[in-house]
Design a protein around this nucleic acid. Structure first.
Length: 292
DNA sequence: AAGCAAAGCAACCGCCACGAC
DNA sequence: CGTCGTGGCGGTTGCTTTGCT
């Protein structure tokens, strides 16, 4: 539509990503970690600008993404947070593990806005539509003040913090319970589950529903399942006791994925020496990635 | 079944913040 | 302090899917 290209460089590809491009990007980041986004496309053999690669990775390919429709609880959190933060989608997303700013922004514009209007609430001011005539149309945000007032959201955060001491999450990928902590459940400024805090012990332990966080259940973290039967926590050498799944270098992913079993019925996946990811991930089927 | 409109969402663009020099 | 490079954010676009007539 006559838009200027985001990059001056001629010959760079735009538009929807192909499975092959996804594969290249995933493979590169898995084996090299996230280096300079500007340099990444060249190194990964992609005809894309770095910006496009970053966006594709953060919004779609990141392994810690939770896809599918936002739960009512998440939706309420978005509404609460939007009332406090305005259109600062990345800030809002930082409070919702596994959700991206783009996803939340889209959901807000397509669902929540209408929902609020139906309920007679102005989505901009979060006040009843009948009383907003005297209110300013644009919500002014004082950027210097990021303190959240005492709201239901804050109480939720408090609850989460109270549970942070002994948080355990069941990880079906490893058929294990992962011990972690939760820091005010922010994923960006302060990670909800700080990557390096995720420790996988070497002993196979049964899921521990009693130790699961109510919050994480509400956030459907228990749905973070993996299509893989990975009964052993050790690598080929039998010496992996701790996996930093979100380490900057994703070497652990490579180790993790290298000897996974072949699953039937992955015709929709693209081929990769180590990992396969469907072009349109079946996230509504609870899985972030599909390993085949 | 075909055509159209609306909805949903991935991707792009431009701007801004921040660190390095 | 100013400039440059890079990454991140929010707004917007436009393609695809879905629903309706």
């Amino acid at each position: 539509m006559g838009r200027k290209p985001c990059c001056d460089k001629v010959g760079l590809k735009k538009g929807p990503w192909t499975a092959e491009e996804d594969q290249k990007l995933i493979n590169f980041i898995l084996s090299n970690g996230q280096c300079s986004w500007r340099a990444l496309p060249k190194l990964a053999g992609l005809l894309r600008c770095g910006k496009s690669c970053r966006l594709r990775w953060t919004n779609y390919l990141r392994p810690d993404l939770k896809r599918g429709v936002l739960s009512e609880y998440e939706e309420q959190m978005v509404i609460d947070l939007h009332a406090q933060l305005g259109n600062r989608w990345s800030k809002i997303a930082s409070h919702l593990p596994g959700r991206t700013d783009n996803e939340i922004k889209n959901h807000w514009n397509t669902h929540i806005k209408k929902k609020l209007k139906k309920m007679g609430i102005d989505p901009l001011t979060h006040k009843p539509l009948s009383t907003i005539t005297s209110e300013p149309q644009e919500q002014k945000i004082d950027k210097s003040s990021m303190e959240l007032p005492e709201t239901s959201l804050n109480s939720t955060i408090t609850e989460a913090k109270e549970e942070e001491k002994s948080m355990k999450i069941t990880c079906p990928l490893l058929n294990q319970t992962i011990e972690t902590t939760i820091n005010g459940f922010c994923t960006k400024e302060v990670s909800l589950i700080e990557p390096r805090e995720i420790l996988v012990t070497s002993t196979n332990s049964a899921p521990s529903p009693t130790s699961s966080s109510k919050l994480l259940e509400e956030l459907e973290f228990h749905d973070l399942e993996w299509l893989i039967d990975y009964n052993s926590s050790s690598d080929d050498n039998g010496n992996i006791n701790n996996l930093g799944l979100w380490d900057d270098d994703f070497g652990a992913w490579g180790n993790l994925l290298s000897d996974r079993p072949k699953l039937a019925n992955d015709s929709d996946s693209f081929s990769s020496p180590q990992i396969q990811c469907p072009t349109r991930l079946p996230f509504d089927q609870e899985y972030s990635w599909m390993y085949t």
